[in-house]
Each structure stands twice: as C-alpha cells, then as structure tokens.
C-alpha cells in the first residue's frame, strides 16, 4: 500500500486556478488552505482577498470571505475582528494593494496592533493590470511603466514592507519568505502557520511577506523566475524573520494575569 503524502487541502475548493503557469499565488493559496486545515480554523476564518490577481481567491478558499476595495483589506479586517474577536481574520494582499494604494491602512492596522494576519504577496510588479511598476519593483527593473528600468531619481526606491512594519511597536510577528523552491515553500508554510497561531493566541499583528514569481510579467520562464528571486529579488528583499515578539508578548500576558 502506498502511503498518501500529499492531497488537496479540505478547504481548497475543487476549482481550477486561473493563475498563469509558474505563478506563486497558487502555491500561496494552497499553503493558506493547508494551514487553515491543520489549525482547524475553517469554521471561524474570515478571509479578505485584494484587488489584483488574487481578487478571485474566494473561488478557491472554502472559508467565509468578503472582498475589499483596493488596499482597504486591513481596515475591513480591523472592523471585522473588533466585532468578532473569536474569528480568525486575514487579508491576502499584493504589493500594490498593501504598499501603494493601501499603505495607510496596512501601516495603521499594524500600528494599532490589530490581532489580524496579513499574507502579503510581493512579485515586484502589478500582475493583473499587465506588468506596470509596483512599489516593490526593484531598481533597474523594466516594467510597462518603467520601460527604461526603474530609476531612483524619478520613481524612488522599492518599498521594504517587512523592514518598515517591524519598526512599529504594534506588530508582533513579521517574516519574509519565498515560494521559489521546495525548501522555500516549506518555510513559507511554517511562517503562515506561525502567523495564524499568533492570532489564535491573541498575540497581535502578524504578517508574512512572500516573494512570489510572476513569469508572465517578468517575461521569463517559470524556472528563470525562480532563479531571479534567488539571484536578484532576495538581495533587495532579504529573507528571514524581521520580528518575533510572540514569546515576549505571551510572557508579559502571563505576568500580567
């Protein structure tokens, strides 16, 4: 008898992903679904998809979901979580959604220490609208709106979300991962699980940034896209845990009670 080592997560619907071949969203969706299954939070989870390629995340994730206008996921998540403290509330956001149009909402929900989880997909480009510059587009990177490459004097610098938000006292757990290798995928899943656990334990704001390939808009093969994350993207956006106050917050809670 063969041992079953892999199957479709229960809370991933029987639907075919609309994502391009080699796109990181499908992996990230599966990881979120697996974590929800493993933590047994399907019945209390409420997800908020972004405007962007992942806008249709509710077609795949079998949990209660409500769409947010572009960038407003963290504001909506704040309203939901405040009225439903036992719910497990997460927003799933792209780089434009979180770091450009919605930077105020993500920054301030983090600063308030909202007990929510953000899954942040960074692919250094605007995917759904066809490959324009994102706030995370790296210097010299060519996009349809930076045809000569991103120029620091006219377009500024890539926004480093983990570095920025981890400096806020309100945040508890922040990690950057990548889904460009089996090891990276495993690490990402661990990070997502830890982020959700952080929320379940009531420890405060958690965010996992996922460097994610976008072969279509990078105009690369999926394999080259994975390599580019290693050789170039992760040099600008280094992987690792930027903040982990889970133990400290837990201890101070215990001391207080």
């Amino acid at each position: 008898m063969a041992k079953k080592v892999f199957s479709r997560p229960k809370c991933l619907k029987e639907a075919i992903f609309h994502y391009c071949p080699g796109c990181g969203h499908s992996i990230a969706h599966r990881l979120v679904a697996e974590v929800i299954d493993e933590l047994g939070i399907r019945g209390t989870a409420i997800g908020i998809p972004p405007a962007g390629c992942a806008v249709l995340a509710y077609n795949y994730l079998d949990v209660d979901m409500i769409e947010a206008q572009h960038g407003r996921g963290p504001a909506m998540a704040s309203g939901i979580k405040r009225m439903l403290p036992d719910g497990i509330v997460f927003s799933y956001q792209g780089d434009g959604d979180l770091a450009a149009i919605g930077i105020a909402e993500s920054f301030h929900s983090a600063n308030r220490g909202e007990n929510i989880t953000i899954i942040f997909i960074n692919n250094a480009v605007y995917g759904m609208t066809g490959g324009q510059m994102a706030p995370t587009t790296i210097l010299e990177q060519k996009t349809t709106t930076t045809p000569g490459g991103r120029n620091k004097t006219s377009e500024g610098y890539p926004v480093k979300v983990c570095e920025l938000l981890s400096s806020l006292d309100g945040t508890t757990y922040i990690e950057r991962c990548a889904v460009n290798s089996p090891a990276g995928v495993n690490k990402t899943k661990k990070a997502i699980k830890k982020a959700f656990q952080c929320q379940i334990d009531g420890l405060g704001f958690s965010l996992v940034e996922i460097l994610s390939p976008c072969p279509t808009n990078w105009k690369m093969t999926p394999i080259d896209s994975c390599k580019w994350i290693d050789t170039t993207m992760s040099k600008v956006f280094p992987l690792g845990v930027f903040k982990d106050n889970t133990t400290a917050v837990k201890k101070s809670r215990e001391a207080a009670s």
Partner: peptide, 17 residues
C-alpha cells in the same frame, strides 16, 4: 481611523459581521 477612507471600510467590515 487613520482616514475617512479607512473609516468607511472599517464600518463595512463590522457591518458584514
């Protein structure tokens, strides 16, 4: 809220519950 925009989306989320 940090802005009027955030406020309307906060109440939208709360209304959904």
């Amino acid at each position: 809220s940090e802005s009027e925009i955030a406020a309307i989306h906060m109440i939208t989320g709360a209304s959904a519950t």
